[in-house]
């Protein structure tokens, strides 16, 4: 069974339709790359999955249970939305680290707040907090940042900031980790270190959706690729197939523009 099922998502901003009849599935442990030109609706799609936008039509299911259905108001309760968001992790193009916290605090803040809701929090407070700290440090180490744990975001390079943001998202153990152009705000020499981290996550079978303009990376790392244009999915399939032998004319045109550069 697919871990994520997206059915017929549609989204309007005022009178403009930004997403139209978006449907796809994602298997556990797979990486999905979403490619497409600027304004094609990639960011909006990720924002819908994270409930930063509410789709006008369609449904989203995680592990077989419907967590959102535009036709069913019972699935849209504000109170449950917060918990449902935790199925997804989000890494933003602009990092959005909290400037007043150190790298480690950025990673552990939300986990600590969430732990307060545990039944046994009062009794085992110290142990729980220590465990969270340790896990945070371990995550930063995985990102190659163990010596930067006590640095504030402004003391870190863009690539380091983005890796902290990835650790922050991983700390909540999301079922599906979403990346919105994680390297677009980085200098070319810094993109490599971030892509390397994402590649290692793929090797460890992290379920991911990656919006990216790095075609070679999408081809190598992703299992599936979706090509979007004008708010619709034009083509989807196994990554190498779509990128090496696109079936649709529009996909071909889009990819040839990348080949030229």
């Amino acid at each position: 069974m697919a871990i994520l099922e997206v059915r017929n998502i549609e989204k309007h901003f005022g009178a403009t339709r930004v997403l139209e009849d978006i449907s796809f599935e994602l298997e556990r442990g797979q990486a999905l790359a979403i490619i497409g030109s600027s304004g094609s609706g990639k960011t909006t799609l990720l924002r819908c999955l994270n409930f930063l936008e509410t789709p006008d039509q369609g449904s989203i299911s995680v592990e077989g249970s419907v967590i959102f259905d535009a036709a069913d108001p019972a699935t849209q309760k504000e109170s449950e939305l917060r918990k449902k968001r935790l199925h997804f992790g989000m890494v933003f193009q602009s990092f959005n680290l909290f400037p007043q916290y150190t790298a480690l605090e950025n990673v552990t803040l939300a986990v600590k707040l969430l732990a307060k809701e545990r039944q046994d929090y009062k009794q085992n407070k110290n142990r729980i907090l220590a465990e969270i700290e340790d896990e945070g440090k371990a995550l930063l180490e995985r990102m190659g940042l163990s010596d930067r744990a006590d640095h504030y975001p402004h003391q870190l390079s863009g690539g380091q900031q983005q890796r902290v943001a990835i650790a922050r998202a991983l700390a909540l153990h999301p079922d599906i980790l979403c990346f919105d152009e994680p390297t677009s705000a980085l200098d070319p020499e810094l993109t490599g270190e971030v892509l390397k981290v994402i590649r290692s996550l793929a090797d460890q079978k992290t379920t991911m959706i990656i919006v990216t303009h790095e075609m070679a990376f999408a081809r190598d790392v992703a299992d599936q690729v979706i090509f979007m244009d004008g708010g619709v999915i034009v083509e989807q399939g196994p990554a190498k197939e779509v990128i090496d032998n696109p079936k649709q004319e529009r996909t071909r045109q889009f990819l040839s523009r990348y080949a030229e550069n």
Partner: peptide
């Protein structure tokens, strides 16, 4: 920046937590 609030939201923080732990000091 709105991104600060959104980062808090996707991390499962409540509106109150976002205000006091993220935006207030900034």
């Amino acid at each position: 920046p709105v991104g600060q609030r959104e980062a808090g939201q996707v991390l499962g923080m409540t509106k109150t937590q976002i205000f006091f732990k993220v935006t207030l000091l900034q």
